[in-house]
């Protein structure tokens, strides 16, 4: 086994500074490549089917939509604090991180590689609204393939982690994929759900969901609410190195072997209990109050450490 790469470079002050700079910056503000560079040990990343292959989507040109040579997702392998990982990062700025034929096939191929390569983990840095509507049918099928490949990798004993701390969050079919992973790591900036608030407002009306009420959107889909509900396993500060710490924390004590009948029956009970406990709620505030958190209105204002301290006072188990 190789020694941790970080130790190998520790003798060079300039290199250490470079690593420090890129890893302490905001995960939210960074783009896909900067997130990978900040998470992985310096110069350890090797990209698969990178931009030099010019594997752009063929379905955008007829719609006069410029393509991208990586089709909006960067995939490859590298070392995270010495551990060999496969990693994928979606480019949220390119068509909202939408999944099309090529984009989806890169993710599926990476998850399939995990079965033979057996890395310490597959990291999915999600930044997506789900299906790319310009190639909707291909995107829907691709997400179904990603979903099955995620579950297959886990059944083969490889942990798959979803990292969500980006502008688009993880919505649509990729929100389903996130919860098919071994664990979900979020920052409070991250959002995780299925239908976008704009879609619900358009179809059901503003009284059902006011998509412009950002505080409300956050209380329904944001990282803090998902953590309090037990949907995110770990909540971290918005720093790339905090996500790296969380990956190691999540992998410690995780022995992936796919879902068992006992585990899924427990999940069935947990999700049923959640409806019994909170099925009449329409705002995160109501749920947090029922969880016994004092002054739930202040939760959105707390920084991550203060929030985690407040969350630890929950009287009822999170469902």
């Amino acid at each position: 086994m190789k020694p941790p790469h970080a130790k190998a470079t520790a003798a060079e002050p300039s290199a250490v500074n470079a690593v420090h700079d890129s890893s302490t910056r905001s995960f939210y503000e960074a783009d896909a490549r900067a997130r990978i560079a900040g998470l992985l040990d310096r110069a350890s990343f090797r990209e698969f089917v990178g931009p030099c292959r010019r594997m752009a989507s063929p379905h955008l040109t007829p719609l006069d939509q410029p393509g991208a040579f990586d089709d909006g997702v960067v995939v490859g392998e590298g070392l995270l604090r010495g551990r060999r990982v496969l990693i994928a990062a979606q480019q949220g700025a390119f068509l909202g991180g939408g999944v099309g034929e090529v984009h989806g096939a890169k993710l599926t191929g990476l998850l399939e590689r995990a079965v033979t390569e057996r890395p310490a983990a597959v990291l999915l840095l999600l930044d997506t609204g789900g299906v790319r509507l310009h190639e909707a049918n291909a995107g829907l099928i691709a997400i179904s393939e990603i979903l099955r490949a995620t579950l297959a990798a886990r059944a083969a004993g490889v942990a798959v982690l979803a990292l969500i701390g980006s502008g688009n969050g993880a919505f649509g079919g990729m929100g389903i994929v996130a919860r098919c992973c071994s664990a979900v790591l979020m920052s409070e900036e991250g959002r995780l759900s299925l239908s976008g608030p704009e879609v619900i407002e358009t179809v059901r009306g503003v009284e059902e969901f006011d998509a412009r009420d950002r505080a409300l959107v956050w209380r329904v889909t944001g990282g803090k609410h998902r953590f309090l509900l037990g949907e995110a396993n770990l909540l971290v500060a918005d720093r790339i190195d905090a996500f790296a710490d969380a990956v190691l924390a999540a992998l410690d004590g995780l022995h992936e072997s796919g879902d068992s009948l006992v585990a899924l029956e427990r999940e069935q009970t947990r999700l049923s209990q959640r409806i019994a406990d909170y099925g009449d709620c329409r705002d995160g505030l109501e749920i947090w109050r029922r969880q016994g958190i004092a002054e739930p209105e202040r939760l959105p204002l707390l920084d991550t450490a203060e929030f985690l301290a407040a969350a630890a006072t929950r009287g009822t188990p999170c469902n």
């Binding site: 389903i176 996130a178 509900l229 999940e267």
Partner: peptide
């Protein structure tokens, strides 16, 4: 399409079914 279902994590319920 409902705020209540999103609030409770409809993506998790769908993932569970899958």
């Amino acid at each position: 399409l409902s705020r209540r279902d999103e609030l409770l994590g409809i993506n998790a319920y769908f993932a569970h079914l899958a």
